[in-house]
Write a protein that binds this DNA or RNA. Structure first.
Lengths: 226, 226
DNA sequence: TTTCGTCAAGAGCAGTGCTCTCTAATTTGT
DNA sequence: ACAAATTAGAGAGCACTGCTCTTGACGAAA
């Protein structure tokens, strides 16, 4: 009676999913700015106030979509990664999968990597999902032989310590220099995608396929992938 | 009678400025999402419909603020640049000025480097202002001696041509490899700032001063600044 | 001085997020 | 099996939004 969900619980779970699906559909059409609770309710044939039994506010609905989007792009990256292949190819696959997902879901991408929308949505719920793409890159680094990178002596102490904390929590054995370079590569990955999607590359590298592919290789070199 | 503006024209220009100032003030408080025409009108002691004599829509007001923001961060970068100093110091000054401006005006920064807000604002009006920070970096590259970077043979043709067009329109003599690296550095600059402001660095490089300073140096190396 | 274009104001429309109350249905405890 | 407690949806309503249209007053040119 507790494990096997009651009919009401099943209905609730299903409706919650349907609401998110409808919201995602609308998000793809009109963007986060134009997402309307009433329109979602209309599409589902219910009245707007009923939605509040499932999501206490519009921002909470958006937060749910944010978490889903983080998981979606993370899963895209993970399933593009084939641990059997050589590290450089794995690196390339993850980068391109992330970009492909972003281009297929531009509004969802903007939701997670664009300007934060509400006052501040709780980041605590999202951090677990938010790190999946980065984690996939870490896995590649972990597995692959790295070209030795000379330790940068000018690395500031603050950064050295932050890198140390990161390698400890990730359970990976990387020098502070390499960890920092990986952070830069991670930044470069999403910086490139954002610039492409947000129109910053028009008049410079507008079809940015070649630029992105080249960036992918350059950053693989940069972190020391053989 | 035409050059020396009539009283009416002066009043119109002044009110246009006051409206933008009030909107900017409100933007800094509640963000683009919460910017309300009626609230702006209220602050100016006028009725909301009167604003439409100055800006035909809310999005047009935002577009005006976008152009102003591009110019503001561009000017911050330009005035931080001292052509008398050595190239690496100029590079550092520009990077830090851009970051400082962004941290002081987070909502204005989100307006220009975050997710595009309306359907699509005309980019044609903004491209002139949008390139000023990048142009400042180009100026530094132009002036400074560059460590020679071996030409990447794997540079795709599409990218080679895009780089050639860019160097031509910018009137600067750079190899396709260096031009591409400059584009990557430009991406890294705003990628880092966006990640910091949009909360992507929490739990990794949270006070990101050291990371940003290090990134600045690394990218100076990357483009070949001596 | 009269005419004409511009301006602020006001009312109003359609839409929004959200709250509250009411009724119907389902789950739960006895 | 029945009553009590919980949960669901419907509807009305509040305060707010962007935006349009009309009306009357003011300033500039003829």
């Amino acid at each position: 009676m507790s494990a096997t969900s009651t009919a009401r619980e099943r209905a609730r779970a299903e409706l919650t999913r349907e609401i998110k699906d409808a919201a995602r559909r609308q998000l793809a059409e009109v963007g986060a700015h134009g997402l309307s609770l009433r329109a979602v309710a209309r599409e589902l044939g219910m009245v707007s106030s009923a939605l509040y039994r499932y999501f206490p506010s519009r921002d909470q609905l958006l937060t749910a979509l944010i978490i889903d989007a983080y998981n979606a792009i993370g899963e895209a990256a993970e399933s593009a990664d084939n641990p059997g292949q050589d590290p450089r190819e794995r690196w390339r696959a993850i980068w391109h999968a992330a970009r492909a997902w972003a281009r297929e879901h531009p509004h969802e991408y903007a939701l997670i990597y664009g300007s934060p929308i509400p006052g501040y949505q709780a980041p605590q719920d999202t951090i677990a999902s938010a790190g999946r793409v980065a984690l996939a890159l870490v896995e590649v680094i972990k597995s692959g032989a790295l070209r030795p990178i000379p330790d940068s002596p000018e690395l500031p102490d603050q950064l050295r310590e932050q890198a140390a904390v990161l390698t400890a929590t990730l359970g990976v054995d990387l020098s502070a220099t390499t960890m920092t370079r990986l952070l830069m590569a991670w930044t470069q990955l999403f910086g490139s995608i954002s610039f492409e999607l947000f129109g910053q590359y028009v008049n410079s590298v507008d079809p940015s396929d070649a630029f992105f592919a080249h960036t992918t290789r350059q950053m693989a070199d940069f972190v020391g992938l053989v």
